[in-house]
């Protein structure tokens, strides 16, 4: 919509010649305006990106390696043949799918509440924004304390309510620990998702609701046929953002479980970090990070294609 209006203005120039000139002038101006951003972003990442790509083609076993045989795609083959890699990939996919799905569903519900006619709505919004603002590391430390097997408040709460008899070791079993990390992550991220979706909700014209209500449509139907289609762009952006973020997840793992127990919470980014820095296997670690990039690109492309129903101005 917005792009269309912008195009009309530029397109309204009288003659093609003049239009091209204006285009060039604008192009030059755009270049200068974008130069600072380009330098600040690509100046920092371009060189490291290619350095890492290069390293991924060599066998580099030390940060100071002088003998670095060229192995071509050998590191990639090594990674793809490693069961540890596939296990961490599986866990990361599980983490990504479950946390993103939960965040989306709960985020939609909370967005609805944020948009509803509440008394003291400002207070509710203020409360909801708190987890979003909480730094990830603090969030991890907080939940680690809550899940603590000896003094944690979750154990205290559940046993005082009579739900559990013995204190549970929430982070002591690989599958359980991964789910607990997901809970911590979802708690922190639902508000972010909710605010994104709220922004989409508020841009739905009220006439649409009113029209649907005049038709005596039920709420589930209004949701399905009015709200959801209008929210598709917001949802697709949230999905892409959260999927990318979840797939790269590192800090909450580092602070909560360090990959344990039995590697149960070792995600692929953490695995790459371990391989590169703890095992000093920089070639393989670099290959791993590029595999992560490829998977993220593929997932994002799939999402965007699936959800690309409405015209999105910028993506």
């Amino acid at each position: 919509m917005t792009v269309a209006s912008a195009k009309q203005t530029t397109g309204s120039s009288p003659t093609p010649v003049k239009r091209r000139k204006r285009f060039d002038r604008q192009g030059r101006m755009a270049f200068w305006l974008l130069l600072p951003a380009g330098v600040a972003v690509f100046g920092v990442i371009i060189y490291p990106m290619f350095r890492t790509l290069l390293v991924s083609l060599f066998q580099v076993n030390s940060a100071l390696a002088t003998v670095t045989p060229f192995v071509g795609l050998g590191n990639y083959e090594h990674v793809l043949a490693s069961p540890d890699f596939w296990a961490s990939m599986g866990r990361t996919l599980y983490f990504t799918l479950v946390s993103t799905a939960l965040e989306l569903v709960l985020g939609l519900a909370v967005a609805g509440l944020l948009n509803a006619k509440l008394k003291a709505r400002w207070l509710f919004r203020t409360i909801v924004v708190i987890p979003w603002a909480l730094p990830t590391i603090v969030n991890a430390a907080m939940w680690k304390g809550i899940f603590n097997a000896q003094y944690g408040s979750l154990n205290a709460l559940l046993s005082q309510l009579g739900i559990i008899k013995d204190y549970q070791v929430w982070l002591g079993d690989p599958t359980l620990a991964l789910n607990m990390v997901i809970i911590a992550d979802v708690w922190k991220t639902v508000p972010l998702v909710a605010f994104f979706l709220l922004a989409g909700l508020t841009s739905i014209p009220t006439e649409l609701y009113e029209a649907a209500q005049l038709d005596r449509a039920s709420w589930p139907r209004i949701f399905r046929s009015v709200v959801l289609p209008m929210l598709v762009p917001s949802i697709s952006i949230v999905l892409v953002l959260r999927t990318v973020e979840a797939f790269k997840v590192f800090d909450i793992i580092y602070a909560m479980t360090r990959g344990g127990p039995i590697n149960g919470t070792e995600t692929v980014a953490y695995y790459a970090y371990q391989t590169a820095f703890s095992d000093q296997n920089f070639g393989v670690g670099s290959a791993l990070s590029y595999i992560i990039v490829v998977v993220i690109l593929a997932l994002s492309a799939v999402y965007l294609r699936l959800l690309r129903r409405s015209d999105m101005s910028l993506l």
């Binding site: 290619f50 350095r51 790509l53 290069l54 390293v55 060599f58 100071l64 390696a65 002088t66 920089f282």
Partner: peptide, 22 residues
Amino acid sequence: AIGIVAAAALVVSGCSVTGAST
């Protein structure tokens, strides 16, 4: 394109793969 430039720069500067000076 940028890749080619980077690779060329690498050859010219004669660094090790990690980029650490020798």
